[in-house]
Design a protein around this nucleic acid. Structure first.
Lengths: 206, 206
DNA sequence: TTGCAATATGGTTTATTGACCATATACTAG
DNA sequence: CTAGTATATGGTCAATAAACCATATTGCAA
């Protein structure tokens, strides 16, 4: 994106702050904040629109960030992910950051996803432990080998699920305890596919 | 919170939708949307203010949710957490929901938290696997027994950390591979506390 | 030095907006 | 049956806000 002057950046930041709080400012409010006339703001906003940071719309108290800038923010505003740490660098140095995770994008409450609290340790070899929250994306179709949630006799179970010729295999992952693969027949057993596990989350007491 | 009539609820929902997109509506815009006069909206808004859903402020295009309602939303708007599934109930039925997780609150980029990509399998018994993202809250002090991130010779390591008399113990969790506890002496080794692990996150290809 | 971009001001105009009036209807609780 | 609440309308008005004009200053690049 085109670079901004210091003043423009200050004003843009102020506008962003206001918008974040759902309180779009008037030109006068911005002017008051920075101790300048409404008119200066009018012009500043003109520049910000021309440079593509603000949406090019007119109207009373209608100031908005542009779609392009919004995309830009989204791409850079996630939580930084630190990969390998370069020798001698502070941990959050540019070199160490392998990307940014937009938590909202991952866990966005978009398509009816939900968390399921894991009971039992049958999937411990997959790093899914008792008490974890697995993020479930509802689905009705089995995808062979995917870690999925199925409802077996009104019990929600997390397993790797395979569709076989006449039955459905529910494969646990706990070598130590030696859980056995469960087999369910759609006719005989009360089984229902709930969804696929698309994430696992564990929070530790802070 | 005081109950709303159907109309009031509709209008409130519309206002919420607009605000979510940082686009506070005018009374006229709301009226147009529902096919009614600006005046009806004026009155509706009056009710919503009286019932405490909207902030009691006046001004042009200054509509806002009240603090009370905002709090209420925050408490109920997270991703639902499904616990035990009651017999015969749909998975997302009221009875099954043990709470709501406000992902933003947990992962809020508040105090400089960041994710660290886990390398190696030394903490696998704690369910922290290679490739996982551990959420790290920066800290300088060791808290005995907490899973922490330390920088040992410019290598970020996740371990349970203990402060002992003359050394620091870094305890892995992988019985199968038989990793041994590392001991580091602050004088001799280049060791630095980075932070505590406050969460672990794994996302699966969707 | 000339010209342009950025910043700044005061003043004026026009459009938008919320507020308020009178009024009407439907429905419910007492 | 009556009073009150919620919903609805049209009309008017005052406040607010953005737009735009003329103008000035500063600093930088050509």
């Amino acid at each position: 994106m085109e670079t901004l002057t210091e003043k423009q950046q200050e004003v843009l930041t102020f506008i962003e702050d206001c918008l974040r709080e759902n309180d779009p400012p008037t030109q006068r409010e911005i002017g008051d904040y920075f101790g300048m006339a409404q008119n200066s703001v009018y012009q500043l906003i003109g520049y910000l629109k021309k440079k593509g940071y603000l949406a090019d719309i007119r109207g009373h108290r209608c100031i908005k960030l542009s779609d392009a800038y919004l995309r830009h923010l989204k791409a850079t505003q996630g939580i930084p992910i630190v990969g390998r740490v370069a020798a001698g660098q502070p941990i959050l140095a540019e070199e160490n950051i392998e990307g940014y995770l937009d938590v909202q994008a991952v866990f966005g409450r978009a398509e009816g996803t939900f968390f399921l609290r894991v009971v039992g340790d049958s999937m411990i070899d997959e790093g899914i432990m008792e008490g974890d929250l697995v993020l479930v994306k509802p689905a009705t179709e089995i995808e062979n080998g995917r870690i999925s949630v199925v409802l077996l006799d009104d019990e929600a179970t997390v397993k790797r699920v395979y569709r076989q010729k006449y039955r459905i295999a529910l494969k646990p992952a706990n070598k130590r305890a030696g859980y056995k693969t469960l087999y369910a027949k759609p006719r005989e057993n009360n089984i229902r596919m709930v969804g696929h596990v698309i994430g696992c989350l564990r929070t530790v007491v802070q």
